[in-house]
Design a protein around this nucleic acid. Sequence first.
RNA 1: UGUCUGAUGGUGUAAUGGUAGCACAACAGAUUUUGGUUCUGUUUGUCCAGGUUCGAAUCCUGGUCAGACAACCA
Length: 561
Amino acid sequence: MNNEPKVPAEETRQINFIEEIVEENLRTGMHNEIHTRFPPEPNGYLHIGHAKSICLNFGLAKKYNGKCNLRFDDTNPVAEDVEYVDSIQEDVRWLGFSWDDRMYYASDYFQQLYDWAVVLISKGKAYVCDLTAEEVSNMRGTPNIPATPSPFRERGIAENLDLFERMKKGEFANGTKTLRAKIDLASPNMQMRDPVLYRILHARHHRTGDKWCIYPMYDFAHGQSDYMEKITHSVCTLEFEVHRPLYEWFLEAIELPLPRPRQIEFARLNLSYTVMSKRKLLELVKNGFVNGWDDPRMPTICGLRRRGYTPESLRNFAEKIGVAKRENIIDVSLLEFCVREDLNKKAIRVLGVLNPVKVVITNYPEGQEEELDAINNPEDESAGTRKVPFSREIYIEREDFMESPPKGYFRLAPGVEVRLRYAYYIKCENVVKDSAGNIIEIHCTYDPATKGGNSPDKRKVKSTIHWVSVKHAHECEVRLYDRLFKSENPEDGQDYKEDLNPESLKVVTGFVEPYVKNAKPMEHYQFERLGYFIVDKGSETGKPVFNRTVALKDTWSKNLK
RNA sequence: UGUCUGAUGGUGUAAUGGUAGCACAACAGAUUUUGGUUCUGUUUGUCCAGGUUCGAAUCCUGGUCAGACAACCA
């Protein structure tokens, strides 16, 4: 007996249309427990679109105290590989979901599926067809014009049985025969015009090896796989909507006892400035436009992970975008909001300068240095404090100084006093330039009374800037990623390669405070006033490598435009 | 062209015949040792035309627009 409530009892809550169906089924007792599944084909890496589906399926099970399986839909051996099987598991787990011991493969069901195909043939509901793919295509008709029957449609049951068995035994070459369902050649739904159930594919399968040379099609495998796993709600994307009658036809034709799974469709995720099609992502990888599936510019889960996105931020994103049947294009800014929201709570703040200009504090004694107290995370007191070394020469961000500042510029400028975070107030006295007129040094004076950043006389400064001591600074490599595509909807473009943004990756040498010596791969940092960064997995040079996850919200530069 | 599906602010998503709500974005203000965060406020919406009704985003009729499908892919 399980006494846990199946339906959460909050008074006011927003549920989506799938949850509504689930709650209805639970309420009427159609199901005691719901059971969903996440069924990727292992032919590529998972991306943010899959994350939506994962959060939906696993999230549904979690919310209603049910179960969710992981199932590999591996019915097409030519596209699939164990590399993908492994990465998919890793990504689902990383997202924070567990299938416990319920990991299945459609290929586990090949024998049962075969037996069911034999049942269909025996009932006269399927036949072996000798037509080629091209011939079938030519005879399929149009939505208005019915298909012309295959000459093999009325083949006898015994002959079909014999032929199908010989297909299985490998007597025929690829493409010479198929097993087709006998349904309705005049159906306005093209899926019902005698769809192919089995095709001959003399190809090695990543799990079943050479055991099979005929493989079931998606339509013949999916519903029955759901059935075998006792799936109650089979949630998939909108393009399978027209397949639903077929999904139900097979369950009915094989006469599988109730209860049967129910297919429910939702609109897939589209993200602005992002391509999501597996085919195009594969091309980006194969043709070297990116450095692998986990390139931080990729919308893959492993790419996002390496970019610094957290599982929490992705789950939250999935929650925020909702679930509906209407086509949608979500703006990437929502995704960025989600990761900022999460990282703001977690990331350790450090001082780092990416585009340095040297500041000399002329009245600070030469050779003197001191350590100042800095707060690790103002949003999280338990993160503690650290010491930051200070000396006569420091780097500041080049953008934090302007010789002739426009109105509304708060940072350092001739005669202007600003605060060095956690250190002192400094005032710009003069600027040193090279012969070409480039600023090479800024000379400032500091006020010793403002140590720590507070002025005893309560005088205000307009801004606080970040800095790092030249002598103590650590060099690091910083990778600044921008969007990979220039246009808002690169998915529309005929040639997406033309739409690539060549400036999507910029590598710079930055300087950070000594604290990051201890930085470990996959740790998140906020470079104050710059953005969120993650320590990249490996670095050959010994220098720490940071990937920028996302810049801080920047209202100043927005005002400039 | 045929079938199916959908249409609510800039973008998403609620409201199932009864005050069009929420989030992001935008804008304004307050706080701030990050031009960040946080807080407060403001602007912006029911595809169109009819109909039913005291009352319609919601129900009906007609239209418009958008997407999916016509692989031996999933």
